[in-house]
Every structure is written in structure tokens, then in C-alpha cells.
């Protein structure tokens, strides 16, 4: 049923390693992207004209930078950013370089995601917190982030799926994982079953991320009557 190539890849643990590399790159890049994107999203939210600490100039500037990175297609951004990867991790090849690229591409995405999640927090609730004498830092930590938590988790799920897609694309310039297996063993050596196997595995990983993420988001959302 399976081609020789597939059996060889499986026997040598290459597919298993591909699964692991995809998961590992996605999770690590997501974590770093969130660590950068979430604070950016907070800054975008609070410095907005309607935010708790309006700084229109900074807000516009940051918005422009974010939009710039978001409007460049990943495949182009990746190639353009190779020198940056070399600067940060010393190499422009392999997983470490790919993670740098994924983070550069995903952080602005996460920032917008976080910004819109935070925007959902009712202005009245923020006002109530202000009326009680909360400082801006207290509003961020005790109101904005906790109240937006379910939306932030949902945003994280969507970002992770996007990052997983990016990680597969990074195969074209030397990334590893299921994307690379599909390209070099499936596509270039004419083994459609290898390609389809990678597709299938990717779908499974995406489904797991989504189901678990949405479940956590739901579970932590106190607006829903359990």
C-alpha cells in the first residue's frame, strides 16, 4: 500500500522526527512570538486614542511597523530576513534560523490579535476600575489581561495554527519538519503518499491544537455558564 520511500522514511524515524520538529518549532516560535506580540498588543491597545494612556504618535508608528511586517507575504519576508537570522543566532540555515524567521513574521500577527482581544474588554469595566483608583499598570494586569483571557487564548490558538503553516513553508529555504519531508521526499521524488501522509499529520496536529485551545478558552471563560 505504501511506497518503498515511505516505508524507508518511517523505518528510519524520519517522519516521526518530522512530526516532533514541526511541533517543537511551532510551540517554541509561538511562545516567543507571544512573549513579544502580547506586550506589543498591550501597548497598541493602551496608547490608542481611546486607550487608558493615549500616545497617538507612538501608536501610529507602532501600527505602521506592525502593518508593514503583516503585509509582506511570509515567503518573501523569510528570504528578506535571512541576514537578521544570521545576526541573531549566527546561522541562516536550520531550525534555529527558522524560529527567528517565524518569530519575526508571527509577532506582529500576535500583536494585532492581542490588540483586538483587549479591545473587547468593556470600556465601562475599565472606567469602573479607574473610578476605584487603579493605576494604569493595575488596569493592565488586573483588568485588561484577565478579562480578555479567553479571547487571548483563542487568539493564541489561531496564531499557533498560522505559525505551523509558516513552519511548513520554511521548508523551501531550509527549514525542517513535515513541510520539508513533503517537499523533498514527497514532491521532488514523486511519492504522493509521503506528501499525503504529511498533509494528514499536519491536519491532525492542527485539530489537536484547536480542540485543546478552544477547550481551555471555554473552560476559563466565566461568562459562560458551566
Amino acid at each position: 500500500m505504501f511506497s518503498d520511500m515511505f516505508q524507508k522514511l518511517w523505518a528510519n524515524g524520519i517522519i516521526q522526527r518530522g512530526i516532533w520538529e514541526t511541533i517543537y518549532m511551532t510551540i517554541l516560535s509561538s511562545l516567543i512570538s507571544y512573549a513579544i506580540g502580547l506586550p506589543l498588543g498591550v501597548v497598541l491597545n493602551i496608547t490608542d486614542r481611546e486607550g487608558i494612556y493615549p500616545l497617538p504618535l507612538l501608536n501610529r508608528l507602532l501600527g505602521l511597523v506592525v502593518n508593514f511586517f503583516r503585509s509582506v507575504p511570509f515567503i518573501i519576508l523569510m528570504v528578506a530576513m535571512l541576514p537578521v537570522a544570521k545576526l541573531v543566532v549566527g546561522v541562516s540555515l536550520g531550525n534555529r534560523a527558522m524560529i527567528v524567521m517565524l518569530v519575526i513574521a508571527a509577532s506582529p500577527y500576535v500583536a494585532r490579535m492581542a490588540e483586538s482581544a483587549l479591545k473587547e474588554v468593556d470600556a465601562g469595566v475599565i472606567e469602573a476600575a479607574q473610578s476605584m483608583g487603579s493605576s494604569n499598570a493595575q488596569i493592565v494586569w488586573k483588568v485588561l489581561l484577565p478579562e480578555a483571557k479567553p479571547a487571548l487564548i483563542t487568539g493564541a490558538v489561531i496564531s499557533m495554527v498560522t505559525i505551523l503553516g509558516y513552519s511548513a513553508m520554511s521548508a523551501t529555504i531550509g527549514g525542517t519538519g513535515l513541510g520539508q519531508i513533503a517537499v523533498s521526499y514527497g514532491h521532488q521524488r514523486f511519492n504522493p503518499d509521503v506528501t499525503w501522509c504529511c498533509v494528514f499529520l499536519t491536519v491532525i496536529i492542527v485539530q489537536v491544537i484547536q480542540e485543546v485551545g478552544i477547550w481551555i478558552s471555554h473552560k476559563t471563560d466565566k461568562r459562560i455558564r458551566h
Binding site: D122, V125, E127, A128, S131, M132, G133, S134, E147, K222
Partner: peptide, 20 residues
Amino acid sequence: LRLRRSIGMIFQSFNLLEQR
């Protein structure tokens, strides 16, 4: 901030923290 802590306020839409 200290002044505001000495003045309570309630609103038409209650404005409770939904996650608390």
C-alpha cells in the same frame, strides 16, 4: 488615585469584572 479611592461609584451597566 487616593482621592478616587475615597469616592465610590456605581453605573447603569454595573461594570462588574466578568471573569471574577
